[in-house]
Computed example of a mutant assay.
Amino acid sequence: LEGIVRESDMILVARGDLGMQFPLEEIPILQHKIIEAARLMGKPVIIATQVLASMMENPAPTRAEVTDVAHAIAEGVDGIMLTGETAVGKYPLEAVKWLRSIIETNEGRVSVELKPIDDDIQKRFAHSIAKLAESISSKLAIYTQKGRMATRIAAYRPRIQIYAASNNIKTLRKLTMVWGLKPIKVKANDYKEGLEAAYQELLKNKYLSEDETIVLTYGLIEEGEHIVKIKRKV
């Protein structure tokens, strides 16, 4: 499992396929292990299959389905995928509305704590930045070219707004699937330039209020120094 997660860009927990290979009563255990492995390696994870299956025929989900979705949120998944409910079901719009309602109701009420379990400097840096911004009730902006550090930071689920700025449109599209990230397109030739461009873009779009604080940084690269800025809009 760890080898698969390590080589993947994103993990999909396809419970239907798992159910054909393992006893059904083991699916919750496997789902938990896969989600945990993905988050520990900073990889986005999505669950799918029979999320709101009863809504293929009915306009409202069952209590068990609502509980299943809430449990997935509590485990810290990045996304929940509807399949037959919206592809061939009778109530596709209602299914999307119900899923959104369940997510919005439960997401802010759970605390998904995750700590780095090894000495990987990338993970520890991501954890430290997330905790720094959270501890001072600050927003966080990270300039990234491939999205790896932004994804690692999001894996720790800090209760703050995270902005991921990049000059790479493919990276930004990928980051739309990651929990808590708001992608921002900027023009920059290097990391330090990207950091300033990200800050200016936040000001331009009025994402920062008066006296609001933001932590700005970028992914760890091989250089003599690394910049972490704390700014307050005045």
Rank of each mutant, 00 (worst) to 15 (best):
L1V: 11
I4S: 08
D9C: 07
D9R: 11
A14Y: 02
L18P: 11
G19P: 15
G19I: 14
Q21L: 07
F22V: 10
I27T: 08
R39N: 11
M41T: 08
K43A: 05
T49S: 07
A60N: 08
V66A: 08
V66P: 06
T67H: 05
T67F: 03
D68K: 12
V69F: 06
G76F: 10
G76E: 05
G79S: 07
G79R: 05
L82I: 01
E85C: 09
E85I: 05
A87P: 04
V88A: 11
K90I: 00
E104H: 11
T105C: 07
N106T: 15
V110T: 10
S111M: 04
S111Q: 03
I117C: 01
D119G: 00
D120A: 13
Q122C: 00
F125T: 09
S128G: 02
A141E: 01
K146W: 06
R152V: 00
R159V: 07
A165D: 07
T171H: 08
T171S: 01
R173F: 15
K174A: 10
M177N: 02
M177K: 03
M177L: 14
V178G: 01
K185H: 06
A188Q: 09
Y191D: 06
Y191E: 15
L195Q: 08
Y199G: 01
L202W: 02
N205P: 06
S209N: 11
D211K: 02
E212C: 05
E212F: 03
L216H: 13
Y218R: 11
G219L: 01
I221C: 00
K229M: 12
I230H: 12
